[in-house]
Computed example of a mutant assay.
Amino acid sequence: MPPVVGKVNDGADLPDQDYQSFTSEVSASWYFFSDTDSTIVKYFWCVGTSHNTTDCSVLEWLDTGLHTSFSRSLPTPLSGGTLWNKVYAVDAVGHASDVAVSDGVVIDTSPPETKDVAYLGDNLVKNPSFEVGDITGSTSSCNLVIPTPWEIDTASCIKVQAPDSPLAKDGHMFVSVSGSIQQTISGLEVGRQYKLTLHAGYPETVSNTHRSVDAIVTIGREVFSFTLDPNLCRGTCSVGDHSVVLWNKHTYRFTAVDTSLVLKISSSSRMMEFVLDHVSVQTVDYVAGQDSVDTEEHLVVHSVFLSHWSSLHASWHFEDLRCKVITRMTSIRNAKSLSTVAR
């Protein structure tokens, strides 16, 4: 009886490698070959560019003795593509096992590329700025009017705000939320990536003794959260003679798992209150250049500087078509001294 065929890993060590960056060396390891009638006396190993048991176009069959891992330098560097390692065993009486073939290793010699990201298409959120009919001032009663097509539950308190001064982030109105407000987002493409953006802040009427607000954002099975810190704006922020809402922009990305998903924005406690405006859901497409009317570069930086606090927000977009990006490193440096501020 011939030896029992085993398994082959790409790479000389465990675990099995799916990618390699070097082009002048091939390696493999194998295990689980066995022969109960006599004994295995040697292995043969080859490497090819086709997923079959016969192609050995990269490295011809090589007798490796009883070694169960092997590496070999190549006289001509590889230009890329996928390699498959193949091994069979031979026992003491000359019987050969079937050939075991690995699951392949991709030769990747190119680094990830920077990609601009374009947000294309219309905003899928209906009435994103909570506009209603002819309302002036701020409603003091809960749920007096609910902006269509937004919905609430009986435990929530929603107040439409239409101040005389231009406090809204977008349009003329916004809402204060204590509890939750939601809308069904339709027209999604399953498997497509989307950008969700909302603007939240403290109501201008909140006193200086207010506490932090924790909020939860859910869309489909995705759950996100954000926090409003009272130290960022103690109650009413003032600019000249006008009070303002310090709007905090929160951005999330999600992949659609259905054509319609419920977007729900809620405070973590009924005792917490925040204001909400300008909610959007847009498709995300990665492009090679700035050929869109609404395009961000691969590195986007936004900073806020006030007298009592400052913040720096950054996002970046990279793509590797051969293998997935597994590590990202960032650092912030002082432009004057070139010293590293954060890493």
Rank of each mutant, 00 (worst) to 15 (best):
L59H: 02
Y43L: 05
V106A: 11
D134L: 14
F70A: 06
A100H: 00
P163R: 13
P147Y: 10
K115P: 00
I135L: 14
D294P: 10
N52F: 10
I135P: 01
L276F: 10
V117E: 09
S280F: 07
A342W: 04
L232M: 15
W61F: 06
F44W: 08
T154W: 08
E189A: 07
A200Q: 04
S129K: 05
Y194S: 10
P3I: 12
V301G: 02
A256T: 02
T68V: 03
F70M: 07
V93H: 06
F305Y: 14
W84E: 04
S141Y: 11
I135K: 14
M271C: 04
S225W: 12
D214Y: 13
S268P: 01
I152D: 03
R72W: 11
T136C: 09
C142H: 05
C233G: 11
L263P: 01
D320N: 13
N127Q: 04
L74K: 04
V239L: 15
N85A: 11
L198S: 05
H317C: 13
Q17C: 10
V101D: 01
T114D: 06
V145F: 06
P15K: 02
V87D: 00
C233Q: 14
S34P: 00
T23M: 09
G179T: 08
S110P: 02
V5T: 06
S102Q: 00
E273I: 12
S24Y: 07
S29T: 03
V262R: 09
L196W: 12
T53S: 08
G81W: 05
Q183G: 06
S69H: 03
A162K: 08
P111C: 04
A162N: 13
T259F: 05
D320S: 10
M329W: 08
S292I: 02
Q161I: 10
V190D: 02
I265H: 05
V87E: 00
P147A: 13
P75G: 00
T148Q: 09
Y31R: 00
D116H: 07
T39Q: 13
N123W: 01
V281K: 01
S34E: 13
A256I: 02
S138H: 06
R211G: 14
V90I: 13
V239F: 12
